[in-house]
Structures are given as C-alpha cells and as structure tokens.
Nucleic acid binder design. Structure first.
Lengths: 343, 343
DNA sequence: CTGTTAGCGCGTTCAT
DNA sequence: ATGAACGCGCTAACAG
C-alpha cells in the first residue's frame, strides 16, 4: 500500500538502514547511492511516516494548541493563523483542540494532546486567574508551553497585547481631545473582584486618568450584564440619564463598542458629536461599521513571531523553560467615533 | 520518564500484553486483574502513546483539516469549531494546516498531513473550480475526504450552504417587499467566467428574478475591484449615477454589504429608506452594524453534524468513499437594512 | 484467562 | 561505506 524505506531498500538492493541514512542526508553514505536512493524514493512516491519517526526518536514535531470553542474572537483566529504559518515554515505540525468548558477544564485537551506526544503547548483563553490543574503537571515537568491570554500579573510564558497600556493610551488620546468626563463600559462581574480581562482594562483606564490628573471614582465604570440581550440597552439608558453624563467612552472591545453605538443612537445621542467611543481589537466590525470605530490594534504578527521563536527555542532545548511574560503595545487606530468637544 | 504499559506490567507482575488488553477493556481478562490494572494505571499516571498505537494498528484517530490562512472568515471558523467539538466527542484529534497560497497549492499541506497518517481530510477554500493536483492522489486512493466549500456543480463529498438558494431566497424576499429594480454587487472577475464563489450567487439571483417574472440583464450586476480600497467607492458612485438606479441590492457577504452601506451613506443615500441592502453570513458585523444588516445565516451546526457523521462513517469504512454533495439551505435574517418601497 | 512473540516504520549503534 | 540487529510503545495472533 504505502511505500516505506524497506520497499526502497529492496528496490536498490540495500538495507533499510542505508536508506534511512541516505534520506536524512547523512555524510557517511556515498554520494552516488545517496542520489540513487533519493531519486528512487521520489519516484516511488515515498513519504516518511512521522509517527514511526517520532516513536523512535522520542520527539515529535507537532505542537498542540488549545482554543476556546465557545467564544468567537476574530483577532485570536488571526493570531493562530499567523502562528501556524510560522510553525509550518519550521516544519512543525499543529494539533488543535477546541476546549469546551466543563467540570475539569483543559483536562481532556491536555490528555488528548499528551497522548499525541506534542512537543509543546500553546494555550489560549485562561478563564481563571489561576493555572488550571490539568496544565499544572505539564508546567511542573518543564515542558514547553506558551499562554496567549493576559490572565494576570504574576503569570509567566505569556505573550499577549498589553491591554493596560492600550486602555491607558486610549484614555490619553481622549483627554488630548479635550474630554474631561470619561467612562469605561465593562461587562458586569459577579464576584468581589472583576475577571482578569476586565481588571487589566480598568487598570489602564485608571492609569490614564491619573496621568492626566483626572480623578477616578467608581461611578466612572458602567457595567452591563454580558449574556443578556438587553444588558447594553439598560446600561446605556442609565448612562444617558446620569446627572454627570460622560462625553467619551472606553469599551471592552469592538463588539461592545458597536453595541454601545447602536443603543446610544436609539436614545438620540450622536457619535461622535455628542459622545466619543473607543473600541478594542481593530476587528472587521470596527472598520466596516457605518461609523468606523476608533480602536486599538493588537500587534498580531509581532506576537506570532515571538511566540514561535520562544516555542522553537524551548522545543529544541535551547531556551529556558520559563521566561517572563511578554506584553506588546497595541496601536491606536483613529477613525470616526471620536472627536473633540464641541465649542 | 513517561510511564508505559511495561511499567504497569512490572508493577502488577504481569506481561504488557495483558495490560494492553485490560486497559482496552477486553472481556478475556478477569474482572479483578482488569480492575487492578486500570487502577494502577491511573495511580501511576499512565497515558497511552497514540503514536505507537496508530503505528501498530495502522489506523490513526486524527483527521487533518486544511484551512486558508489568507482570508479571515468568521463563519468558516465557527464551522471548524463546531466540527471540532463533534470530532472530540468521537475521540478524534484534529491536525490543522493553514494553507498558504503558493505555486503548488495544498501540496505541502497534504504532504504534512499524510506523513502524520491522518485518517481523513477536511478541506476548505477551494480557490480553483478544479481539484488541485495534490488532492487528486488522495481522492484516487479513495481516502476519506470532505470539502467545505461550494466550488462548483460537478463536485462531490462537499458539504456547504446552498448559496444559489440563499440568493434566490433573498431576491424573492426583496421582490415580496415590492422591489422591482434589483441589483447584485459582486467582486470583479478577470477571466471570461466569474469564480465559482461569484457564479453561485449570480445563479441564485437570476433564478429569483426569473421566478418573479422579472427580466435579467448584465446591467443588473455591479462589479467592484475587490483588492483595491476604493473599489467599492467607485462602484457605488457608478450605481448612484446610473440612469435606472436599483432600489435593492444583494451583496457578496456582510463585509461587502457594510462597505456598500458606508459608501451609499457618503453619497447621501439612506439605507433602507432610499435603498435596501442584503448581506450574507450572519456575521457579527451584520448584527452589530449601526443599522443591523438583513442577511442569510449559514446552518453552521447542521453542516458540522453532517460533516462529522459522513467523515466518521468513511473513516470506519462504513460509508461509501464518495457521496453526492450536500447543500444546506440558509436562513433569512430580516433586520433593518431592508424595507418596502415608499408610497 | 494469561504469557509469548512478532511486528508497525523508522533511527541508530555496532560491526565489518 | 554498508549490513545486521535492536528497540521506541503498542496491538494482536498464537499458545497453553
């Protein structure tokens, strides 16, 4: 059926050992036989069995990547695609596992990927601020791993956009436009502390206010119930009715920004004339919205490059198994949902 | 380092053969020893090496999926995620290859995935109307394969949204609203015939017109240069200046629809008062656009189910290696970019 | 019921 | 420069 090195060996009247060496370009096999073997291999349509190779060499050339299957994030997919291209250039394969939130998150994913003998792991979407149990073993064994999501300050091996810097930058920009009454619109959190995703945004916002010498108070934060369809509707109504209505809004991401703008329009507020709005992600909706949304672009390509470099280093045993997290600054994309204050 | 079945065998004073059987739940091993072995396996943190298993059984439980890395398609990613979830339920792994267009498309992808001994292939984004050379061998060998993209009528093993029906349905809907002057906005094609992606849309449009008893003429088709930023700008200007301006527009997809609406607004035309616009895909931009876009939703979950069922059948040798393509009807999502004609 | 043995395809060490 | 032989971890066929 499929042609193996023994088939080739039989064809050229040699042993499969020689064929193996020749195909790997070993110097200790004569030039002629090497050429002969390589030619016949091609002629016979030989294709190496990477399973057997990995089994023998005890090292695989595939890396596992764990993605969330519940949330759809355009930018995450861009990152994955960019990373994958670089991986393919290094002759690395990608085994994807779409993680479905369950009682033991990541457990099935890690189990499956371990069985497949992946050489490294790329993990996205840490919902929890703490390392999941299933990943703990992997980390403790000092196996190569990289996290794609900014899930807290005390993290390591994480490569992501610096959201604190992003929201600080956006605040600075709005203040520069003359705005003094800023608010940030964030999904509501149940527990005593907001989720890391919310926290970093808030931190950047506060930092920006502080640098501008503007006071921060909890009233500057407008929350909405994320899962409920009317969450944003209700939040914007609250905002419009508030005694000290803000003139500029930071939002969780572009989708939230677009939802904001929809609701504000229904309430009779024009963006950006009456109120400015900034999104996050530079996703297609920010570019194609009827009013293109001012937003922050994640440095996707750059992060992909760093990710692959770190990962290949680790897989080859060249780099340290742990490194301090890398945060890349986003880029402000000024479009049409932000404007200076009217006269 | 890693614990294998021989380690377990040593632990329970048996041979690895027995351990292998016990772990697979074979009936021909006593209940007690089976329990004992399974417990010690868990205790020792055993994890099967699926490479070795696949090598031995000559059958792998991973399926390859080839995706385009250049175009970002939200709906495609949704399909992949949905399919992946079902695959994982069947204990199938997914090896992803992000195809980068080059001189020999799919060649590196197929090579890589073949080496990994994937049991089946899922292929998206057939740019060409004809089967790529690299996939021809795979098909000729009757290996399991499924195509995700509607690339022509004479195809097989393809599962996708029925775009002809979608555009017919949209046309029918617009005609039902009272529109008589419809146009379709499509990316420009260089060759003598449009690309399959364009062709199916055009076909649906013509079908819809015909059923409504409305005449079709080439002037009903408005083309724009897809890669050029100003393509849509120029196309919409042409549209507005045309002597017999249409009152309703079908577009390539939601992004194109949003771009249309942006440009029409710049030219002073209000959607939907002056002109109706229909998109395609039900992507987030259609939902979150300042004016939510009427569009057609692809039956993502349904297609994922069919895909996995067909694929698992093929992989298990239960189903035929070729089946007639399956086209699933999209669903019309009526939102706010379409309206009846004014009095 | 359990032990023994033989590979799956490949890389590699030890001879020659 | 090439051959012979072993083993990676696992399944399966054959004994007993």
């Amino acid at each position: 059926m499929t042609v193996t090195i023994v088939d080739i060996a039989r064809e050229v009247h040699m042993t499969h050992g020689t064929v193996s060496r020749a195909l790997r370009g070993s110097q200790q096999v004569s030039r002629e036989t090497r050429k002969l073997i390589q030619q016949t291999a091609r002629k016979m349509g030989y294709m190496p069995n990477s399973l057997a190779r990995s089994l023998r060499t005890r090292s695989s050339n595939t890396i596992g990547i764990i993605l969330p299957s519940d949330v759809q994030m355009e930018v995450l997919q861009e990152r994955v695609a960019a990373t994958a291209r670089l991986a393919h250039q290094e002759n690395l394969d990608l085994m994807t596992y779409y993680n479905w939130p369950e009682e033991h998150p990541y457990q099935r994913a890690v189990h499956s990927l371990r069985s497949a003998q992946v050489a490294g792991l790329i993990v996205s979407h840490m919902c929890e601020p703490t390392l999941p149990e299933a990943l703990k073993d992997w980390v403790d064994e000092d196996r190569p791993i990289i996290f794609l999501t900014d899930y807290g300050r005390e993290s390591f091996n994480m490569i992501d956009t610096d959201r604190v810097e992003g929201f600080r930058l956006a605040t600075e920009y709005l203040v520069g436009l003359g705005h003094r009454k800023l608010s940030i619109v964030l999904p509501w959190w149940d527990g005593p502390t907001p989720s890391p995703n919310v926290q970093v945004r808030l931190e950047g916002f506060r930092k920006g206010l502080q640098e501008a010498g503007l006071p921060y108070s909890p009233e500057r934060v407008i929350t909405y119930k994320a899962m409920i369809e009317e969450g944003m509707t209700e939040a914007m109504r609250r905002l419009v009715d508030s005694p000290d209505r803000p003139t500029a809004l930071l939002t969780y991401n572009d989708n939230a920004a677009a939802a904001c703008i929809q609701e504000l329009a229904k309430l009779g507020l024009k963006v950006p004339k009456d109120i400015s709005v900034v999104g996050f992600n530079d996703s297609s909706i920010s570019r194609r919205n009827l009013i293109p949304i001012t937003t922050l672009a994640q440095p996707v390509e750059e992060m992909a490059r760093i990710t692959m470099r770190k990962l290949t280093d680790m897989v080859r045993g060249e780099g340290a198994k742990r490194f301090p997290s890398v945060l890349c600054p986003p880029k402000l994309m000024i479009r049409e949902t932000t404007a200076g204050l009217g006269p």
